[in-house]
C-alpha cells in the first residue's frame, strides 16, 4: 500500500507528539523524547501497515521513550524541588506555562499518561489501555480523575475568575489585586491533596470492577 513520505508524518503529527511528551515529561526532557520517538518511528516506518493509525502508533512509541526517560531521570536522582521558578513566560516560544507542568507533575503517572494521551493525542481509552496496561475503564477513570484534579490545581487564569472581585475592586479601589493569586495558591496546595484522593478513588473503582 502506498505510504506518504515520512516528512508528511512529521508535519502532521509532530506538534501533537511534542505536546504529549511535554505534558508527560515536562519541559526539560520533552525534546529528547520527541527526537528519540521520531528517529525510532522513521526507522520502523517502512514496516508499518499501510492502514495503521499513525497517531496511535507514534504515541505508543513516545510512551515507551517517555518511560525510558523517566527511569533514566530517576537513576540520576535529580532533586524534585529544583525546578526553576518562573513567574511568567520568558517570551521564548519553547517556553510554556511552568504552573501547568507543576500541576501535571503532581498527578499520579498513570493519570498524567491517560490525560495526555486522551486529551492531547485524542486516543480512545481502548488504545490507551493497550499501551499503559489495565482495562479500558481504568484508563477512562484515570483520565477523568486526572482532568478533575488538573482543573482544580491549575486554574488557567487565576486572576480572571472571580466575578465578585470586580465589584469589590470597584468599591474599595486598588489593593484587591493580590487576592486572586493567593486564592490560586490555596487551590494549588489543596489540589495536590485532592490528587492523592483521586488516585485512591481510582483504585477503589478498579477493585469494584
Amino acid at each position: 500500500m502506498s505510504k506518504p513520505p515520512f516528512e508528511q508524518i512529521v508535519t502532521e503529527h509532530g506538534p501533537m507528539v511534542l505536546r504529549v511528551v511535554r505534558a508527560v515529561l515536562g519541559p526539560h526532557d520533552a525534546e529528547d523524547a520527541w527526537s528519540e520517538t521520531f528517529l525510532a518511528a522513521l526507522q520502523a516506518y517502512p514496516e508499518l501497515p499501510g492502514d495503521a493509525n499513525v497517531a496511535a502508533w507514534l504515541v505508543t512509541v513516545a510512551h515507551r521513550k517517555a518511560i525510558d526517560v523517566t527511569r533514566a531521570t530517576a537513576r540520576r536522582a535529580v532533586p524534585v524541588g529544583e525546578l526553576p521558578e518562573r513567574p511568567s513566560r520568558s517570551g521564548r516560544p519553547e517556553d510554556w506555562d511552568p504552573d501547568l507542568w507543576r500541576a501535571l507533575k503532581a498527578l499520579p503517572e498513570r493519570q498524567r499518561h491517560a490525560v495526555a494521551y486522551h486529551y492531547l493525542a485524542g486516543l480512545p481509552y481502548r488504545e490507551i489501555a493497550a499501551m499503559t496496561g489495565g482495562s479500558t475503564d481504568a484508563a477512562r477513570r484515570a483520565a477523568a480523575d486526572g482532568m478533575r484534579t488538573l482543573r482544580r490545581t491549575y486554574p488557567a487564569h487565576p486572576d480572571g475568575d472571580a466575578d465578585t472581585s470586580t465589584d469589590i475592586g470597584a468599591s474599595t479601589g486598588g489593593g484587591t489585586g493580590a487576592a486572586p493569586p493567593a486564592a490560586a495558591e490555596a487551590g494549588r496546595s489543596t489540589g495536590t491533596r485532592g490528587g492523592q484522593g483521586a488516585a485512591a478513588g481510582n483504585e477503589t473503582g478498579a477493585r469494584g470492577r
Partner: peptide
C-alpha cells in the same frame, strides 16, 4: 468559585 469558574476551560491552554 475558582474551581467552578475554570471547569469549562481546557487546562492545556498553557501548552
Amino acid at each position: 468559585m475558582t474551581a467552578t469558574g475554570s471547569a469549562g476551560r481546557d487546562p492545556f491552554e498553557g501548552l
